[in-house]
Design a protein around this nucleic acid. Sequence first.
DNA 1: CTGTTAGCGCCTTCAA
DNA 2: TTGAAGGCGCTAACAG
Lengths: 330, 330
Amino acid sequence: MVTLEDVARHAGVSLATASRVLNGSTRQVGASLRAKVELSASELGYRTNVAAQTLARGASNVIGLVVHDLIDPYFAAIADGAMRVAESQGLMVMMGTTHRDPSREIAYVSTLNAQRVRAVLLVGSRVADPEPTRRLREELDRYRETGGRVACVGQDLLGTDTVVPDNRAGAAALARALAGLGHRKFAVLAGPDWLLAPRDRVAGFVGALEELGLPEPLVLYGSFDREGGYAAATQATGVTCVFAVTDVMAVGALASFRDRGVRVPEDVSVAGFDDIFTLRDLVPALSTVRLPLPQMGARALELALDATGEARAETVAGEVILRESTRALD
Amino acid sequence: MVTLEDVARHAGVSLATASRVLNGSTRQVGASLRAKVELSASELGYRTNVAAQTLARGASNVIGLVVHDLIDPYFAAIADGAMRVAESQGLMVMMGTTHRDPSREIAYVSTLNAQRVRAVLLVGSRVADPEPTRRLREELDRYRETGGRVACVGQDLLGTDTVVPDNRAGAAALARALAGLGHRKFAVLAGPDWLLAPRDRVAGFVGALEELGLPEPLVLYGSFDREGGYAAATQATGVTCVFAVTDVMAVGALASFRDRGVRVPEDVSVAGFDDIFTLRDLVPALSTVRLPLPQMGARALELALDATGEARAETVAGEVILRESTRALD
DNA sequence: CTGTTAGCGCCTTCAA
DNA sequence: TTGAAGGCGCTAACAG
């Protein structure tokens, strides 16, 4: 293993000089020595030992990114946005997937703290249970006490910089749009009650219907994935319109209706939430509430990186997009 | 920042003892001292400094994962498989996305080498141009000289352990299956010619048709994404069946046909390759060649981790799956 | 079982 | 501009 010292010796300069030319110090080094060092480094095949550098500097060039599930296009899109920012800043990304287990999220924060990463990004809905949230917050506090920066995409519950999708308002706007199409009898395919994002979306949707003086929708619970949407949709009878709290669940609902010969939108309208990328290829195209996913990930990392004193929460509005899966009632 | 020394002092033991209890040594420590150390560590909020640990041990607990594009379900699925293995082994994952730029791939290997990661996984098609491949190989050699482990998912061109999807055979089998449906006039939506995976798939498909004594297909080139498939499909006229070299391109082709009022499979049959997860929700369901994506990622990491002397190449067969997007000709 | 003591490779004052 | 030297926090002999 070639070390800086080897390079310095080979080039006939001091360790300090070699360090200055190879590892971006602001200090100046004479042209001839600089050339010597660079030549030696390349001849010897020197590669910086980042661990040593991190130890000596007390700061790393890595950020941590924790998402629920990489396969889910929602998280992939957000992660992609964040990674582009990281790349542009010369930062490496350490990624963890929790598969929606809050304790894994806490464990990752602890590990990333041990890695002394520059910043941690937590992407995904918080949970309703205050206990894991409290423990996560403790872990984050410990990290921040020693200079760690944190940002979230989701609910603003951790005292960190947060990019907050406006789930309530988005769902409410969608409800009004669907009501505007003439729908009166709705079903809501809700995610698990212990996740906050689906809760907010349900609340926003139900609240808006109430304000409009429409009957309460049928609320059906299911897991927060395609299968959950599929299962819940089988019970969505006697309604003209179904709102699934995520596109992924809506996709499951579409499959369910398809398998049972229920036509969308002729027999029932369906809408989702998020506007994940893969949606454009569904038939019928799915109505949804569009969230600027990559930008949200990018913005969250920017917030984390540009440290200010107090935590900022930036709300992101969702835009209702009506496509073919919803139709106006006669 | 709390260090091991702080903990040791607080617990009234030596640095070595504290290290032994907190950072998984095989050495034994008496129960009472062990308890003291653990208590002190938790009271003080101690977090291992992984950089220091890595430096002292000369080995890290991180692996590198380099993919072309996270948004692409193909890579997301493979990455997911690899990450599950990493998690199960207590390894963190440092991830990089190249967006199909070979030079970025080389740069990532260099960076991951500097990070002294335990292993590097390179996922994605190699390129036809031997020059970047040679440079990448050089960079990999440098990494391996100092104990780095490497594995690839793709073509076996780098002298590493490799999980090789059998693109030729899979495409050939698909060609035979489609010919068995009565098709004679084919178009192939080929990816860019400089990527090897699409090349092999085209070659396998064309070769099989030739063996069957069928006319040469119309080969249309396009970019290796949805848009490429869309664009190429607009020129696929006068054929009864279209083979897109990836599902993602096939999805683009479906969109193209849909937009132009060409019915699938009534007017034209369409097939893809990979069997990405999102395929199940397309209408019509897409015929394809199934690859066990997550298992491929998982297996590649296993290969990299369990170091043997020589490089192994494991071929993965694709399974032809005929669904609704292809129909038998009368 | 426990403590002492060299490093691991690099950065960064401080002097020259 | 260049060099000398003391850490950064932890591990792993080695000694007791």
